[in-house]
């Protein structure tokens, strides 16, 4: 049984189909990459999967539950979390505080008990603080603990955004260009982080443009072009697919 099942998914903006009758599934424990030229509909797909967009038609089934019309926070609570293409962190506050906010969805204390400070609310607070520290060291930002998030390098910001997504304890993690804007030397560190996440038995969907990385870490690849699924398979199979070469490089010319 697939963890996530997408069938007939379509999103139209006016006359343009950003995602067009898409069918695929994500298997438990795999790393599935979604590639395609700019404007192929990859980020739109993520926005549909996480409830930020409502599809024009089609269905998204996660763990045998229909989440097609769920709100983003409901999708997150059902076990899917994501990072954003434009790195999204709370740049106005410290790194640790970011991760504390990331834990807020686990808090059960009500309004009154948190204001008055019942022992249960205080215990919960302590637990959340500990968990935030745990994720801080998991993503390798211990030494930036009390630094302002705005002052982090692009690479550290990517780590923090991944840490935020992990805070929600997802079963399926959607990474939207986790190495975008990061220089070549620092990419291997981020790949190591992705590997570490896989060892936690978290399933990953990855949007990426860096082909060498995609080819080396993916179990399976889906190629989108104009919102359609034009190829699907192992890295090798996809790399040699005529359709894929055509989508990226255009028609082969024979003179």
């Amino acid at each position: 049984m697939a963890l996530l099942e997408i069938s007939g998914l379509t999103k139209r903006f006016g006359g343009l189909s950003a995602v067009d009758d898409l069918n695929f599934s994500v298997k438990q424990g795999e790393l599935l990459s979604i590639i395609g030229p700019n404007g192929a509909g990859k980020t739109t797909l993520f926005n549909l999967m996480t409830g930020f967009y409502k599809p024009t038609s089609g269905k998204i089934i996660f763990k045998e539950k229909d989440i097609t019309r769920s709100k983003p926070h409901q999708v997150t609570r059902s076990g899917i979390s994501r990072t954003f293409q434009m790195t999204s962190i709370y740049s106005q506050t410290t790194v640790l505080e970011n991760l504390v906010i990331g834990q807020a969805l686990h808090a059960k204390s009500g309004l009154c008990s948190s204001i008055i400070g019942f022992p249960s609310a205080n215990r919960e607070r302590k637990k959340i603080q500990d968990k935030a520290e745990e994720i801080l060291s998991f993503v390798g930002l211990e030494d930036k603990r009390d630094k302002s998030a705005a002052g982090l390098t692009e690479e550290a910001q990517k780590r923090l955004s991944i840490g935020l997504a992990l805070s929600t304890e997802p079963e399926l993690l959607l990474l939207d260009e986790p190495t975008g804007g990061v220089n070549m030397e620092e990419i291997s560190g981020l790949i190591d982080l992705v590997d570490k996440i896989r060892q936690l038995n978290i399933t990953i969907c990855l949007i990426e443009h860096k082909m060498r990385m995609v080819m080396s870490i993916s179990d399976r690849i889906i190629v989108l072009s104009y919102g359609k699924n034009i190829a699907e398979g192992t890295p090798d199979a996809v790399a040699n697919n005529e359709e894929v070469i055509k989508a990226y490089l255009g028609e082969r010319c024979v003179f």
Binding site: K71, P72, H73, S88, I101, G102, L105, S109, E124
Partner: peptide, 21 residues
Amino acid sequence: SLIGKTFIAISYNENLTESLG
């Protein structure tokens, strides 16, 4: 409090906060 922190988080970045559940 943690509830107050989520208020502040909304003022910082509403979409990110929503995506954090």
